[in-house]
């Protein structure tokens, strides 16, 4: 997957990952994918809600130990 931007939210917790992904979306073009890494376990539910509300798509997500990675495609 081609990633336009990597966003490191590790160590941050609610609401910062959501604020950061919003900012990152403003810095890429429609159709671009942003890779976001977070350690906040709450971000799994929060990212899903955020994507539903904003119309962006989480095309893939994975968990590696305590790190959650989301690939978000800008609408």
């Amino acid at each position: 997957m081609q990633v336009a931007k990597v966003l490191d939210c590790k160590g941050k917790c609610c609401p910062e990952p959501i604020l950061d992904i919003k900012t990152a979306m403003g810095e890429v073009k429609s159709g671009d994918v942003v890779e976001m890494q977070a350690t906040d376990a709450g971000s799994v539910a929060d990212m899903a809600s955020w994507a539903k509300r904003t119309g962006n798509t989480i095309v893939e997500q994975k968990q590696d130990g305590t790190v959650y990675t989301f690939y978000v495609k800008k609408k």
Binding site: I18, L19, G55
Partner: peptide
């Protein structure tokens, strides 16, 4: 502060 900033991040 959390809810207001998160709301804007959710396009509200």
């Amino acid at each position: 502060l959390i809810l207001a900033s998160a709301a804007v991040a959710m396009d509200m």
